[in-house]
């Protein structure tokens, strides 16, 4: 077992003149959940595509399960499975047929594939609809099947590209539960997300990606401490946003912030307290970086 399931150094990728990844260094410990957090277009999918051997990097190196993703592609493929952004299942086949097909493609005999299919249908609570065409499934069911399909072969490293985008709250929480269960079985999970809350709930470590660079990484706690525990939001009479201030949430810090603001904002300004969002972390991290660069 390698200490790091995923390791990249100086990974670069450009499409034409547009640089998508500009020197990515990261390590993911085996048996942990790693979340890559960033807005659309930050390079998340490109990074997943490189790590899962779909795209060749222009420079730098990447190892998955100790194997080079370019030179040892076939060995890497035997260690990974990918659940892409869009459910990759056949609509005109049933769940059972989709799973069996993947079983056979993963090297199982027909009997083994049948047994594995039954196991996964049960685990993902799809037994009742196992014989129905996937096109009749709800979004949550499709996503469950999609994940089940990528677990057929039981590979040690799982890539999940925005696994809960477009899901309702109940389906999202159920999927989080499953992902946590996978970790407890020793799987390494590399997921991308736009939601801080998702990274917060799931990941052992988070890296924030922006403009093709990792702008920060650490545990959820470490990242949030760079922004503040809570955010004070100031809104004017017409509910327009006046300002956002980070605070540690303690009474003295909030009082100090309000004292500083007194007189600077209209008297009818309303305040509210909320948890930091992805945007806050993102704004805070990218501006810190710019300030560091300026010094």
């Amino acid at each position: 077992m390698h200490e790091f399931a995923i390791e990249t150094k100086g990974l670069r990728k450009a499409f034409g003149r547009q640089t998508v990844l500009d020197g990515i260094d990261l390590t993911v410990r085996a048996g942990t959940i790693f979340a890559l957090l960033g807005p659309n277009g930050a390079g998340k999918t490109t990074l997943i595509n490189i790590l899962s051997t779909l795209t060749k990097p222009d420079g730098g190196s990447a190892y998955v399960a100790g194997r080079d993703v370019v030179r040892e592609r076939d060995a890497v493929k035997r260690s990974i499975s990918l659940t892409g952004q869009f459910a990759a299942v056949d609509d005109m086949l049933t769940a059972k047929e989709n799973l069996r097909m993947m079983g056979r493609l993963s090297g199982f005999t027909a009997d083994e594939a049948r047994a594995r299919t039954a196991e996964l249908l049960k685990l993902f609570d799809l037994e009742a609809s196992a014989g129905k065409l996937v096109k009749t499934y709800s979004g949550g069911m499709r996503r469950r099947l999609d994940l089940a399909v990528s677990l057929v072969a039981d590979r040690p490293v799982l890539f999940l590209d925005e696994p809960t985008t477009g899901l309702d709250t109940v389906s999202r929480r159920a999927l989080w539960e499953t992902i946590l269960q996978l970790r407890s079985r020793g799987m390494t999970i590399f997921l991308t997300t736009q939601y801080l809350e998702e990274a917060d709930q799931l990941a052992d470590r988070i890296a924030v990606i922006a403009g093709g660079r990792i702008v920060a990484s650490g545990t959820a706690q470490e990242l949030k401490s760079r922004v503040g525990e809570d955010m004070i939001e100031l809104r004017g009479a017409d509910d327009e946003l006046l300002a956002v201030h980070a605070t540690d949430g303690s009474i003295q810090d909030i009082r100090r912030t309000l004292n500083e603001l007194a007189g600077k904002v209209p008297a009818d300004t309303r305040i509210s307290l909320r948890k930091p969002s992805m945007d806050d972390v993102f704004v805070a991290l990218t501006t810190t970086r710019l300030e560091e660069a300026a010094q």
Binding site: R78, M101, R104, L105, S106, G107, F108, E112, A115, R116, E119, L123, L151, V152, A153, D154, Q181, L182, R185, G186, M187
Partner: peptide, 20 residues
Amino acid sequence: MITSRTAPVRNASLAVTNAV
């Protein structure tokens, strides 16, 4: 069981892949 008791060590052969 998420992890399979019957994890394959072999790859699907080309004949099986084509047939599937």
